Amino acid sequence: MSKNIDNIINSLNEISKSIDKIRNDHKRIDKKLFDVYKCFIWDSKFNTIRPVKKINRININLLIGIDSAKETLIKNTSFFAKGLTANNVLLWGSRGMGKSSLVKAVHYEINKKINPNLYLIQLDKNDLAAIPFLLNNLEDKEKKFIIFCDDLSFENTNENYKSLKVMLEGGLEEKPSNVLFYATSNRRHLIPKSIINDDDNSITSYENIDEKISLSDRFGIWLGFHKCSYDQYNNIVLNYAKQFEIDFIKDDFLSEANQWSINRGSRSGRVAWQFIINYCAKKNIKII
């Protein structure tokens, strides 16, 4: 009987070791991937990063009307790529004005022109708890990493902001100097106004909200993106047409572009791009 129990215990121990090995394999970052790929996405299913083989980005020259933000992000990323001090960045503001497109375009330009060992890792806002693991595994004297979170925001019950605080400020343990955090958000303070204006006046509720609002203050650089004016929208459309060498009659072309924005109920860089896609398809013009 005792022998059978010992065998069962030994078998359970072996199973436990196998499970631990699988778990560790899933969590291990294969550093050889950095020799081949420049962009990665955090895969929450396997608790590791996976390479992006075909990157969804547009040429930085197509991003117009956001010159100040573009210049600031290029400079900050250049400093970082050169091994100088740089800030975490929050890109906030109107939808469709090129926040995430700018991050991806700037990374590409700096990687190509300044430092080929600059990497971009996209992290979903629901996976911020992975930040400590990434910080522990990305420390490298030769490589630079930008952790990028698109559409970052927090609801009242979301506790992921605590992991983000570690990224932005560090804790007792110093965070690696070769990792930066870039985030985009439609909300300047990262939480909806409905929560800020909540009637719950309890001390606990107020402190939780105040702590989340203060997160945005921990970004060294804020870049604001605002709604398109009529002229800015027309300039974006014309710039797209120029870049893709599209022949058109200006008045008719802009008339169509503005009717498109009216039908959409908004003007933005995204709406302008969607108009170009539709216009070129109607004219049998291939641009992609």
Rank of each mutant, 00 (worst) to 15 (best):
E174I: 06
D43Y: 13
G269M: 02
S214M: 14
V271K: 01
I74G: 09
K54E: 14
C228N: 12
P176L: 02
I49L: 08
G170M: 03
N160K: 08
I288Q: 08
N56S: 06
D247M: 09
Y161M: 01
E155H: 05
E71D: 12
F244M: 13
C228A: 15
P116R: 11
N160M: 13
F244C: 04
P51W: 12
A241R: 02
E207Y: 14
I15V: 14
N7S: 05
K250L: 07
T72I: 14
I49V: 15
S185K: 07
L215R: 06
S266V: 15
E211K: 10
L33Y: 02
E207S: 13
F40I: 06
F46T: 14
I66R: 00
K31A: 08
I146R: 06
L215Y: 10
L180M: 15
S261W: 05
K141Q: 15
G93S: 02
L12H: 03
D200T: 07
F154M: 04
D140P: 11
S202E: 15
K193A: 05
E159W: 09
N88H: 09
N160E: 09
N158K: 06
Y108R: 13
S266R: 09
A257D: 01
G265W: 11
S216C: 13
Y182H: 09
A183K: 06
S268F: 00
M97C: 02
L102F: 00
Y161I: 05
I236T: 08
C39N: 13
R95L: 01
F40H: 06
E71K: 15
F225D: 03
K75Y: 14
N197S: 12
N208V: 09
Y240I: 10
L138N: 01
L62S: 05
F145H: 10
D124L: 03
R50A: 11
I55E: 04
E139K: 05
T77A: 09
T77D: 06
S185D: 04
N61G: 03
N10S: 09
L164E: 12
D217A: 12
K31I: 03
G93R: 00
D124S: 11
C39G: 07
S205P: 05
W42C: 09
N56G: 10
V52R: 01
C149Y: 02
I121Y: 04
N47C: 13
F148N: 02
L120K: 07
K282M: 12
A105G: 03
T85N: 13
F275W: 07
S2A: 10
R28L: 03
A130M: 00
D35G: 11
W222C: 14
D150Q: 00
A129L: 03
C149D: 08
S2I: 06
H107G: 07
I114E: 04
E139A: 08
L33R: 00
N284K: 09
Q274W: 04
I58V: 14
I209M: 15
N158W: 08
M1L: 07
I249M: 04
N178D: 12
I146S: 05
S255Y: 11
L172P: 00
C280M: 09
K125D: 03
N87Y: 13
E14M: 09
I64G: 02
E71N: 15
G83M: 15
N76R: 14
L120Q: 02
I276D: 03
S261Y: 07
S11G: 08
D150F: 01
N7A: 10
D25G: 12
E211Y: 11
